[in-house]
């Protein structure tokens, strides 16, 4: 079980969180014309990297905040966690 540092609450066990997918995906702006390809990339297409990955997690059974977690997908090492609106270093 992973040990994740919630930037709001501190170190907590994985079972308080739920996984939310790739955090680098950016939703196209509302009312903006987007091509099929751009939209498909947003909705469906994801890379599945081995190694460092920026992920979304929600502290579901805690503060309910969505956070960003920089994690190694192979070793499960967590490098850093960020608040939803925090600048990624």
């Amino acid at each position: 079980m992973l040990h994740i540092k919630c930037p709001h609450c501190g170190m907590r066990s994985q079972n308080e969180f739920s996984y939310g997918g790739d955090a680098t995906v950016k939703r196209p702006e509302l009312n903006k014309e987007v091509t099929d390809q751009e939209w498909d990339n947003f909705v469906y297409n994801r890379v599945s990297p081995r190694g460092k990955h920026l992920e979304l997690w929600q502290h579901l059974s805690g503060c309910r905040q969505w956070i960003k977690v920089e994690r190694d997908t192979a070793t499960h090492e967590i490098f850093k966690t960020y608040k939803a609106n925090e600048e990624i270093a």
């Binding site: 739920s18 939310g20 939703r27 979304l56 929600q58 579901l60 309910r64 905040q65 969505w66 939803a84 609106n85």
Partner: peptide, 13 residues
């Protein structure tokens, strides 16, 4: 609820 929180916190803060 999670869905709404997602948009409020991440997409349209």
């Amino acid at each position: 609820l999670s869905h709404l929180e997602y948009y409020l916190q991440l997409v349209w803060p």
